[in-house]
């Protein structure tokens, strides 16, 4: 049976199930509108550790532990761990995997890591190569900000297009077996391509990612013969307020206007009073909203079919130092809730 739809999209005939999911939020994040959807919130961003990196590692491990426990899966049952973060050479994910002792594949898709790992995990389950997979992604303001931009204590003003790296982690547990009651499964996915609109400024990541996001959405609708109305919710990763507007304009120009059901995690993460300018970013931004809010709303029956799409700005400290442009990527995943009303 051919599960490919077009060059970019796949459908899952065995429908991997999301049995567990958990989101962890940092201090600033839990002061924002997403507070009630987090399974665990930090009281201090250092999380009792010595370095920010260790704190982020502990945070992603916490998300994985919580997702396993609310999915009633033991660590021993996990066949593969897929995950990533933003820090050089996947430092955070590697160290979390060292503690967890599971078969591990580290993934880097910048801020698109959550759906990237979800797609990889779903392929493992659908193909029968694993019966239980854990997908995770994290980001931390204090680790990412100094790697990609400036030290924390450095006095500077952020331009209005700047985004705030979310201190958050999200994890989902995929299983070939259905969850009792209302079940959420992954039914299709669209793997994006790298598009580089030529933006060089690290403070304009929304603009850098918007074309890739629009491309993935259009490809998805074309490959599956669907339109935006087929979804209760369409949520992009971390385009922020600026990128969201650009995406909506690009889509409208292509004749696929995005309606009320579309929003962006970066725009949702904080409210205006938190002074984050264009909104949130980082792997943890989309990971925590997908694993927290979306999964919970699906379990509650508020959402039947959701299109989630993490977006990544593929810059490195070297590329921005050398004045290279910032390529963008986006991967979309379809989640569907069924039964158990």
């Amino acid at each position: 049976m051919n599960n490919q739809r077009g060059k970019h999209s796949i459908v899952f005939s065995n429908r991997p199930n999301i049995v567990g999911a958990a989101a962890v939020g940092g201090v600033k994040e839990s002061q924002g509108p997403q507070k009630k959807w987090f399974d665990f919130t930090l009281e201090d961003d250092i999380f009792g550790e010595k370095t920010w990196e260790k704190a982020e590692g502990k945070m992603v491990k916490k998300a994985i532990d919580l997702a396993l426990s609310n999915g009633r899966v033991s660590e021993k049952q996990v066949d593969i761990l897929l995950g990533g973060d933003l820090i050089n050479q996947l430092m955070i994910a590697n160290y979390a995997a060292r503690d967890l002792q599971m078969p591990f594949l580290g993934l880097y898709g910048a801020c698109s890591t959550m759906t990237e790992s979800l797609i990889a995990g779903s392929v493992f389950i659908d193909g029968g190569y694993a019966s239980c997979a854990v997908c995770a992604a994290s980001s931390h303001y204090c680790t990412a900000e100094r790697q990609f931009r400036m030290p924390l204590e450095h006095g500077n003003q952020r331009p209005p297009s700047a985004q705030w790296t979310a201190t958050a982690a999200g994890s989902m547990v995929l299983s070939k077996d259905r969850a009792p009651g209302r079940n959420i499964c992954v039914t299709a996915a669209t793997i994006g391509r790298v598009l580089d609109p030529g933006i060089k400024d690290v403070n304009e990541m929304g603009a850098a990612m918007a074309p890739a996001a629009a491309d993935t959405l259009l490809t998805h609708f074309r490959d599956l013969g669907r339109s935006p109305e087929d979804y209760d919710v369409i949520l992009s990763g971390d385009l922020g307020h600026v990128g969201k507007k650009i995406l909506m304009d690009l889509m409208a120009k292509q004749g696929v206007p995005m309606a009320e059901n579309y929003n962006d995690c970066g725009a949702l993460m904080y409210d205006d009073s938190q002074d984050v300018h264009s909104g949130g970013s980082g792997c943890g931004c989309s990971a925590s909203i997908f694993a927290g809010r979306i999964i919970k709303e699906m379990r509650q029956g508020k959402i039947r079919r959701a299109l989630i799409m993490s977006t990544g700005a593929l810059l490195s400290t070297i590329s921005s130092g050398q004045g290279e442009t910032i390529p963008g990527i986006a991967h979309a995943v379809v989640l569907e809730a069924e039964g158990g009303e």
Partner: peptide, 9 residues
Amino acid sequence: ALIFSPKSI
């Protein structure tokens, strides 16, 4: 720099 530690936002 030796005395103080970095602070989160």
